[in-house]
Design a protein around this nucleic acid. Structure first.
Lengths: 128, 128
DNA sequence: CCGGATCCGGTCTGATACTG
DNA sequence: CAGTATCAGACCGGATCCGG
């Protein structure tokens, strides 16, 4: 599939860098998966358990896309049956400021938001 | 569709602040409209002219939703026929860090991105 | 069982035509 | 010029199926 770690799928290219980012991240679920990865979730079942209830086919698709885009890597942790865990690549990890800024905005502007436990530890709110 | 709401629509509420933000911003077009607003575009025709080519019905819908969520305000600038311009509210303006962090990530990780003119002037890359 | 793939109805998108 | 109407097709998401 991909050999160079930082190669970006060129079918995503658009004149605007923001549009380009949104071609990967601009949907309802992708950033939630990335959020979960920051919260130290790594296995399929852990993503499924998140309160938003991502459908299994959507999750599989998003993980594939994120891997293809170089934001996520897959590592086998068991061979029979094959099971893998998902991790943010350095490129994916650098999305932290995007998550943090969203979180800060939410805390300022959405009434009654509380910071779920785990977020502080994951340092999502901190500036990178 | 939606009655006016200066506060945050509660049908968007979710246990996670990030999910909550994504209920408004998590799609292909919404953040592009907000980007355009930061680039000092205010009229329907200006959004339509952006290179991504947002369809007219989607634009109308997104502007309505953003207004309902309190991120955008509409101001009449002509009465016959009625014409209005769209502006970011303070709440919308505070999304700048989200845009900036996406832009910075794109500049670091997407090959051959150039910063389109207007972005520097709009200070999107600057930290808020 | 768990990680997905497949199937399928329903919703949303988006190209275009249309209206004031 | 600023939207609305229409409609086919894409995509989402729930249920189910399948391989290890």
């Amino acid at each position: 599939m991909e050999n160079k770690a930082s190669s970006f799928p060129k079918e995503f290219r658009s004149p605007c860098p923001i549009a380009c980012v949104l071609d990967i991240l601009g949907d309802k679920w992708t950033l939630l998966v990335i959020r979960d990865l920051f919260l130290n979730k790594h296995r399929y079942s852990e993503f499924i358990e998140s309160p938003e209830g991502i459908p299994t086919n959507i999750l599989a698709d998003r993980l594939k896309r994120l891997e293809a885009a170089g934001l996520v890597s897959r590592q086998l942790y068991q061979s029979n049956p094959q099971r893998s865990e998902y991790f943010l690549t350095p490129m994916g990890t650098e999305l932290k400021p995007v998550l943090s800024s969203m979180l800060q905005w939410a805390q300022r502007h959405i009434p009654d938001v509380r910071l779920p436990k785990g977020y502080q530890k994951a340092e999502i709110p901190a500036e990178a």
